[in-house]
Design a protein around this nucleic acid. Structure first.
Lengths: 226, 226
DNA sequence: CCGGATAAGTTAGCGACGCTAAGTTAGTGG
DNA sequence: CCACTAACTTAGCGTCGCTAACTTATCCGG
């Protein structure tokens, strides 16, 4: 604990930003080992980099901002995992499913990072986060939804549909992270069932009627079954 | 800030538990006004009750335990809101929808309480919390799902289906709380769309096939549309 | 080669936090 | 009326995020 730590050699004149990157990497690593962001003191981050605490504040206004930088990094990683998972898929719906499963898998593989990015309150709407959010993982998902709309699988506003799918994936991930001891079954099964239901459900809702009341749904299901 | 606070009169001999209840109520109120549990110091709770900080530790081992007691209370309130919302509904699916909408509504009306109960890590699986979780809101939802199964609307293991519906509702609530600035539209619309899709989707999945691949789904949808 | 100017750190410490050890006050059974 | 103990309080420890003020190393112009 609290190793004396090797004092790192001072950065060259022009490039104090080297430290910034080292701090983010160290913070991300320490976060992965902790249960909560509060369990990673700034002092520990400084120690891991081989520097004293106040040096961090030369690069980040406060802890929140450092965590924000980590989150931006995490979103990049999430996007990469999703894109890779969908690379082999040849159909829009197949890609969407791969995206969703990779999303949940990533969240459960990096629960602390996911919590930080998606479960923690975001005091001042972090511009850096939302840029990433809109530019990478989310926009990839949205364009796949657009493909589904173009293919006639979905109908409606792509962004709204993307939010629906995202909510389903997020619901599974957040639930399994927050209540890991509940008998959800395997993450893959739970996620696949829920995501599949979300996709089919959206596609079918248009068939049932524009404003599907519970009664209309029940009646439609009865007709289908016969 | 930090009002001197009226010193409360000492409790009678037998009933130190009076203080316990006062502490929970005060903590719950302060939590509602804060963004995060960290913004509610034990000192503030003590102050609100008119007592000094160490007195709290006569009734709760630590802050976590106090928050756990608040969460137990919150789950009770959530269940009451759900039951009330579904009271007028006459069909299983109608009740399920009312439950889901009331769930999301409650979460957004009490975001700090909901975050504490469902978004915060739960270090030692809190027995008190999970008893409530299993006994009230969740079990009400599950028995409605059972009704849907009995009515032939759903098919499968009720508990697993309940988890699916819960994930959908939780996804909407958690997303809107964590990223309130994103253009989800109104909570009612977003929740209704997502929950409706989850319900229809689950019901329809059985019609598509036992193991619905994206391709099978696409094909089935094509048939339905013609 | 050298002597500011300044980037890149450090030392020391403030106030707030969760929590605890040890003391104090007030009802109550004998 | 007194000993006992439930129901508190006073004082303070260690840790946290963060800051003011000092120090050191590098670069650049002469």
């Amino acid at each position: 604990m609290s190793a004396p730590a090797v004092r790192r050699t001072r950065a060259k004149r022009g490039s104090g930003d080297l430290l910034r990157e080292e701090i983010v990497v160290a913070a991300k690593r320490l976060l992965a080992e902790a249960d909560r962001a509060d369990d990673v003191p700034m002092r520990a981050v400084a120690d891991a980099v081989g520097v004293t605490t106040p040096s961090i504040y030369l690069h980040f206004a406060d802890k929140q901002e450092l965590l924000g930088a980590v989150v931006a990094d995490v979103f990049g990683e999430l996007d990469a995992a999703m894109v890779e998972a969908a690379a082999e898929e040849t159909t829009p719906l197949g890609r969407l499913r791969a995206f969703g499963l990779a999303y949940v898998r990533f969240a459960l593989d990096h629960p602390e990072h996911y919590r930080l990015a998606m479960l923690e309150p975001c005091p001042k709407p972090n511009i850096e986060i939302d840029e990433v959010l809109h530019s990478s993982a989310f926009s990839h998902m949205q364009s796949t939804v657009e493909e589904c709309v173009a293919a006639g699988i979905f109908r409606g506003e792509p962004r709204a549909i993307t939010f629906e799918m995202w909510a389903a994936a997020h619901g599974v991930a957040a639930l399994m992270i927050a209540k890991p001891y509940l008998p959800f079954g395997t993450a893959e099964d739970f996620a696949d069932r829920t995501l599949c239901a979300a996709a089919i459900g959206h596609a079918v809702r248009a068939l049932v009627g524009d404003d599907p009341t519970p009664d209309a749904m029940t009646e439609w299901l009865g007709q289908q079954r016969s």
